[in-house]
Each structure stands twice: as C-alpha cells, then as structure tokens.
C-alpha cells in the first residue's frame, strides 16, 4: 500500500511517501496508525496521537474506523489550511 505524508507529518517522518506491505490484521485506518506508531520513535510521535491528524483513503477524506479494504493509497496530514 502506498502511504503519503503532507505538511508537518512529512517533515517529522522525513519522507513524503513510502510503500509498505501491511499484515492482514491491519484492517482499519486506526489499526494502520497503531501499526505505524510501533515502527520507530519518529513514527510514534506522529501516529501515537492520531486525533491531531486527518486522513484520506484513495484521495477521499476518511475517518479512523473506515476499513482499508482494497485501498491503493492512504494519506496522513494535519487539518487543512488552504483558501
């Protein structure tokens, strides 16, 4: 699965995207965040408190309990500030 990171999420992780093979038990966005938080202290700082983050699944806003199903792309980012 392709993961994308934007704004301070990208800066804190030191990368804008990566591709990971996820274990079968990672089924929801919340489970994905927990899986990522366990990867390293940098990831734990970003994904340990997912309420400060928003996410999109296949380029549509999504919520944490949403199933990943056959998602190709999941993005994590702070609340948006355009306009």
């Amino acid at each position: 699965m392709k993961l994308l990171y934007f704004a301070w999420v990208r800066e804190k992780l030191g990368r804008g995207e990566e591709t990971l093979d996820l274990p079968a038990e990672v089924r929801t966005a919340r489970q994905l965040a927990a899986y990522l938080a366990a990867r390293s202290p940098e990831y734990a700082r970003v994904f340990g408190l997912p309420n400060s983050l928003n996410l999109a699944i296949d380029q549509e806003h999504a919520c944490w309990d949403q199933e990943l199903d056959a998602a190709r792309e999941v993005a994590f980012f702070p609340p948006v500030t355009g306009g």
Binding site: F6, A7, H61, A75, F77, P78, V80, T81, G82, G83
Partner: peptide
C-alpha cells in the same frame, strides 16, 4: 470558499 478552506487538501506554512 468555505469548502476550499476546510476540505481541500492544502497546507500553509
């Protein structure tokens, strides 16, 4: 404009 500010994925630094 309201939706550009609250939903479109832009981030300002």
């Amino acid at each position: 404009m309201d939706y550009l500010k609250t939903r479109a994925p832009f981030w300002k630094q």
